[in-house]
């Protein structure tokens, strides 16, 4: 790969490192920002809609979204699926980290399916229907729909928790990949940190969802 040679590196190594990096910056940071934004669901329809719409006021908003989120996410997901196919299933080794290793892969697939459904439901659908802008009304009516409301809610619940798990556990392995946490002790510290992060982000997103449940 030309780009890799240009960086004096093996392309295999480079793509793996970019995969690891894209999981945290920008996609992981976007996830945190995105979940934070959802807390405005408690501030009522107008404030919530304004806070979402104000992002799109910038003429560069769409570009920023595509370059900062969609392309890195697509790269991360594409390589992620490829990586899942390269592993060997070894159920007799029942260690906790091995379980997390598989949960990381399963949640990755779940998150991908959720993101596709979510982008369709919250972004592309309203756009094409011409109802773009009334995000709060769109979401809450989807949740309270007597026929599909329960399914929508369930998908959102598992999708959001799956994404939070994938990000928190990914941050944990990220610290190993880049050699940030070296000793077993520091790896335990990072693990405790990522468990706390998982709990905080889960609580925050459950609280946000409660506003329109």
């Amino acid at each position: 790969m030309f780009f890799a040679e240009w960086c004096f590196m093996d392309s295999h190594f480079l793509t793996r490192r970019i995969h690891s990096l894209t999981g945290v910056v920008p996609v992981g940071l976007f996830l945190v920002y995105h979940l934070y934004l959802q807390l405005y669901l408690h501030s009522g329809a107008e404030t919530y809609n304004n806070s979402v719409n104000s992002f799109y006021d910038s003429p560069l908003a769409i570009w920023a979204l595509v370059i900062v989120v969609y392309i890195p996410l697509f790269f991360h997901a594409f390589l992620g699926i490829h990586l899942i196919f390269e592993t060997t299933v070894q159920p007799s080794y029942t260690y906790f980290s091995h379980l997390l290793y598989w949960l990381q892969r399963i949640s990755g697939i779940g998150v991908l399916l959720f993101i596709i459904a979510h982008v369709w439901n919250a972004q592309l659908g309203p756009w094409m229907a011409g109802t773009w802008g009334t995000h709060f009304e769109h979401l809450s009516s989807g949740f309270s729909n007597p026929e599909s409301g329960m399914i929508t809610k369930t998908v959102y619940l598992f999708g959001v928790l799956g994404a939070v798990f994938h990000f928190a556990n990914g941050l944990n392995t990220f610290c190993m990949t880049w050699g940030i946490a070296l000793t077993p002790k520091s790896q335990i510290r990072i693990r405790i940190f990522s468990i706390l992060l998982f709990l905080i982000l889960s609580a925050s997103s459950l609280y946000a969802l409660a506003a329109i449940w």
């Binding site: 080794y93 980290s97 392995t173």
Partner: peptide, 14 residues
């Protein structure tokens, strides 16, 4: 840093 190197570790810690 070549193919088959450390980047192939998936942090399963088995």
């Amino acid at each position: 840093m070549q193919k088959g190197g450390i980047a192939d570790c998936g942090n399963a810690q088995n």
